[in-house]
């Protein structure tokens, strides 16, 4: 990413409507990260406020400690057996990330096929919707029957959950391209592969990332749903066990770690977006500053 320096200077000949460009912000990855940090402090503050309220509620004895444990107790549970939590978190993370990755590959590929072949799109799209409408929790037991108690049924459920938003967003993205841009590409003598690589795919990226953010959180849900149905490890298993023993501190700890996992994955995707699409990020900031 080149650092721009000569942008502020007005052009040499009669400027025809050059004014809009006078306030150019520095672009690039570094500025993207900075902007990212600037955007994160607000939600962090809200989160801190929620923690304070939680602590106040438990400290003032408003509810029974066995119903809602205090933040301190919850933290103690995790610190008492760090190995236990680390292991189960790792299992769920593994299932989630693997499912998410498979969903990206399969989702993007099917989207590409659907965009280039209307026949495939017409036959596959309704089926996709059908598959999406079935509650995953209802078919998860079937995967346990088919694939056993190992990792695979959880990964499959995670893939199923994450797949749909990725396909939809990629198809939308690739269709959003200006038809004139494609005609222009034809007059440049570009083949279909070149047009895809240089025009269609990059044009779909902003949409794809929107889908990926939804899919990231879905993947976590998918993995945990898989664990709920039948597992002997993973955060879903931890929660079920704690629930059976009325061990609310462990239950809370499991829930919080699970949410953190989802948020973390989401943030990673968002960070990636800032790095891959600095132009997109800059446009979005422009939009927010004008609406504020």
């Amino acid at each position: 990413m080149a650092a721009q320096s000569t942008i502020e200077q007005p052009e040499r000949t009669a400027p025809a409507g050059a004014t809009a460009s006078a306030t150019r912000r520095p672009g690039g990855a570094g500025a993207g990260l900075l902007r990212f940090a600037r955007n994160t402090w607000r939600p962090a503050a809200v989160l801190a406020a929620i923690l304070v309220v939680w602590w106040l509620v438990t400290a003032a004895d408003l509810v029974k400690p066995y119903l809602v444990p205090s933040p301190g107790t919850t933290l103690d549970v995790v610190l008492a057996q760090p190995g236990y939590f680390a292991h189960h978190t790792w299992i769920t993370t593994y299932e989630t990330v693997l499912g998410f990755a498979i969903a990206i590959v399969v989702g993007v590929l099917s989207a590409v096929v659907m965009v280039y072949s209307p026949t495939v799109e017409k036959s596959l799209y309704p089926l996709l919707l059908f598959a999406q409408v079935i509650p995953k929790i209802a078919i998860a037991p079937l995967f346990i029957v088919w694939l056993g108690f190992g990792l695979s049924p959880k990964v499959v459920v995670a893939v199923l959950m994450a797949f749909f938003p990725i396909v939809i967003s990629t198809v939308t993205g690739m269709k959003s391209i200006d038809p004139e841009m494609l005609q222009l590409s034809a007059t440049m003598g570009a083949g279909p592969a070149q047009t895809f690589r240089k025009i269609r795919f990059p044009a779909a990226l902003p949409h794809l990332f929107a889908g990926l953010k939804v899919a990231a959180t879905m993947a976590v849900t998918g993995a945990v749903v898989g664990e709920f149905v039948g597992a002997n490890e993973g955060l879903g298993y931890v929660i079920l066990q704690a629930n059976g023993n009325l061990d609310t501190p462990t239950l809370f700890a499991g829930l919080i770690i699970m949410s953190l996992l989802g948020v973390l994955l989401f943030v990673v995707v968002e960070l990636l977006e800032y790095l891959v699409l600095p132009w997109q990020a800059s446009r979005r900031t422009d939009a927010t500053t004008t609406t504020l």
């Binding site: 052009e11 025809a16 409507g17 800059s282």
Partner: peptide, 11 residues
């Protein structure tokens, strides 16, 4: 002077 500007930054 505008070589490195993105389209959304141009009039």
């Amino acid at each position: 002077g505008f070589e490195d500007a993105y389209p959304n930054e141009l009039s």
